[in-house]
Design a protein around this nucleic acid. Sequence first.
DNA 1: GCTTTGACACTAA
DNA 2: CTTAGTGCCAAAG
Length: 106
Amino acid sequence: MKSNACKSFDERCYDLLLKIPKGKVATYKKMAEALDTKAYRAVGQAMNRNPNLVTVPCHRVVNSNGEVGGYAEGSARKIELLREEGVEVSDNGQINLFEFLHSFSD
DNA sequence: GCTTTGACACTAA
DNA sequence: CTTAGTGCCAAAG
């Protein structure tokens, strides 16, 4: 069992983020739905605060349309990290969700 | 305790 | 394609 309760919305986002395997990505919408909410923006908010840029793989979160979206250190930086993970990112900053979108069915 | 902000999502024109 | 508008939610001011 895990004490999932008593946690702030942000912490839940980070925890969910850690569930994303390497070489995969998740969308803000999927995250919100996994958290049983519709706060797509609130999820991004937690990332933007960037409390643990090293511990929390915020760069594995992208827009629902497959776009990398934004990043605290710049979208370009995000793309670099994703490519490092093994995710194929187009020059336009597009990600193949059909191949790299992770599903929270754990 | 209300107002503003925001790394989003969706629809319409 | 871009611009505009609406909805959604939580954190910060």
